[in-house]
Computed example of a mutant assay.
Amino acid sequence: MQTWMKTIIQIIFFVAISKLADFTVERFHLPMPPSVFGILLVFALLQSKIIPLKWMELGSSWLLAQMLLFFIPAAVGIIKYKSLIITSGLPITITIIASTIAVMMCSGLMGQWVSKLLRRSSE
């Protein structure tokens, strides 16, 4: 099968997982966002080896490469709130920078912790 066909099928898989997560969270009134549930579902499928990583590598790589396009509508939407940016732009910017640093630090620490666990379990 051609690479572009595999990529499209894998993207359809991610859309299906997203729709399944939306349905499940709504149906069972789960106290979490559907996107988080979808990530947990993909993680569980990968960890349990039900779905091998190669079945989603091309689609996920393409989606990550296109991610900037998903933020353009949000950036354009900011124009509607010019007065808010003028009055509260600095506190908003500081909050964004601080939260970005916090997420980066937590991700790094979590990555180190998981790496240590994996090293210990392989010994």
Rank of each mutant, 00 (worst) to 15 (best):
Ser48Gln: 04
Phe37Glu: 02
Ile92Gly: 01
Leu69Glu: 07
Val15Met: 14
Ile72Ala: 06
Gln47Arg: 14
Lys19Trp: 09
Thr87Glu: 15
Ser99Tyr: 12
Leu46Val: 03
Gly77Asn: 08
Cys106Ser: 13
Ala74His: 08
Thr100Lys: 05
Ala16Lys: 02
Ile79Cys: 04
Ala98Pro: 00
Gln66Asp: 08
Trp4Glu: 15
Leu118His: 09
Pro31Gln: 05
Pro31Phe: 04
Phe37Lys: 03
Val103Thr: 11
Leu20Tyr: 06
Ile78Ser: 05
Phe37His: 00
Lys54Leu: 12
Thr7Met: 10
Lys80Pro: 01
Ser122Leu: 15
Gln47Gly: 05
Leu117Phe: 05
Ile97Ser: 06
Phe13Arg: 01
Ala21Phe: 01
Leu46Gln: 02
Met56Trp: 04
Gln66Ala: 15
Ser18Asp: 08
Gln2Arg: 08
His29Asp: 13
Phe71Gly: 02
Cys106Ile: 15
Met110Arg: 08
Arg120Pro: 00
Glu57Gly: 06
Gly89His: 04
Leu90Gln: 04
Pro33Ile: 14
Pro52Cys: 09
Ile8Glu: 03
Ile78Cys: 08
Gln66Val: 06
Ser60Tyr: 06
Ser60Lys: 02
Ser35Met: 15
Ile12Ser: 09
Val76Thr: 00
Leu69Phe: 13
Pro73His: 03
Ser99Asp: 11
Cys106Pro: 00
Gln66Thr: 05
Ala16Met: 12
Gly59Met: 04
Val42His: 01
Gly38Thr: 01
Leu53Phe: 10
Gln10Tyr: 03
Leu64Ala: 10
Lys82Leu: 14
Thr95Ile: 12
Met5Val: 15
Gln112Pro: 02
Ser107Glu: 07
Ile8Asn: 03
Ser83Asp: 14
Leu20Glu: 03
Leu63Cys: 05
Thr7Lys: 05
Gly89Asn: 04
Ser121Leu: 15
Gln2Lys: 10
Met105Phe: 15
Ala44Ile: 13
Lys80Ile: 13
Ile17Tyr: 01
Ile11Met: 10
Arg119Ser: 09
Pro91Gln: 07
Leu63Val: 06
Phe43Arg: 09
Asp22Pro: 01
Ser122Asn: 13
Pro91Ile: 08
Thr24Cys: 10
Trp55Asn: 02
Ile9His: 00
Leu117Thr: 02
Ile96Asp: 02
Leu84Glu: 05
Val114Tyr: 07
Arg27Trp: 15
Thr95Gln: 08
Thr93Gly: 02
Val36Pro: 00
Ser115Ile: 11
Met67Glu: 11
Arg120Gln: 14
Gly89Ala: 04
Leu58Asn: 02
Tyr81Leu: 15
Phe43Ala: 11
Ile92Tyr: 04
